[in-house]
Simulated assay, not measured.
Amino acid sequence: MSTHEAPDRPSRTRLYLLLAPLLASSAANAKGAKKPAAVPLRGEQAEIESVLRELEYLRERVQALQGKYGRATGNAKIRFNYPACIEQLR
């Protein structure tokens, strides 16, 4: 070990001891801080709008099926609650 390295170690230790409380307090503050709400990206917003358009299409399609098959008689092979489906799609 050279004589140049020996004085450096105690100063490095002192530096760590001086910085430790500062680092600990900043870490404690970071835990309590609230993160800002995420802003949707343009791509995400476009995809959500696309899904909403598809849901609107499905609602219109189910309404058309209700008009076509909604008055089925009691002996129909398929029973479907069109009004409940339309309400859920709204």
Rank of each mutant, 00 (worst) to 15 (best):
E56Q: 12
Y57F: 06
L52S: 12
Y16D: 01
L52H: 11
L18M: 10
L41S: 15
T13R: 14
L19C: 05
L18N: 13
R9H: 07
R12D: 11
S50R: 15
N29P: 00
K31P: 03
A20V: 05
R42D: 08
R12T: 11
G43H: 03
E44M: 04
K34I: 00
K35S: 10
R53G: 02
A33F: 10
P10E: 07
I48K: 14
L52K: 14
E56H: 06
Y16E: 02
R42G: 09
E47K: 14
A20K: 02
A28Q: 08
P36G: 00
K34Y: 04
R9K: 10
R12P: 02
E49D: 14
P40W: 04
Y16G: 00
K31D: 12
P40C: 00
E47A: 15
E47W: 14
L23P: 01
A33E: 09
V51N: 04
G32P: 01
L19G: 12
R12K: 12
G43Q: 04
G32W: 04
A46T: 13
L58V: 10
L55D: 03
L15C: 01
A24Y: 09
A27I: 02
V39I: 13
A28H: 05
S25C: 10
R14V: 08
L58F: 14
N29H: 12
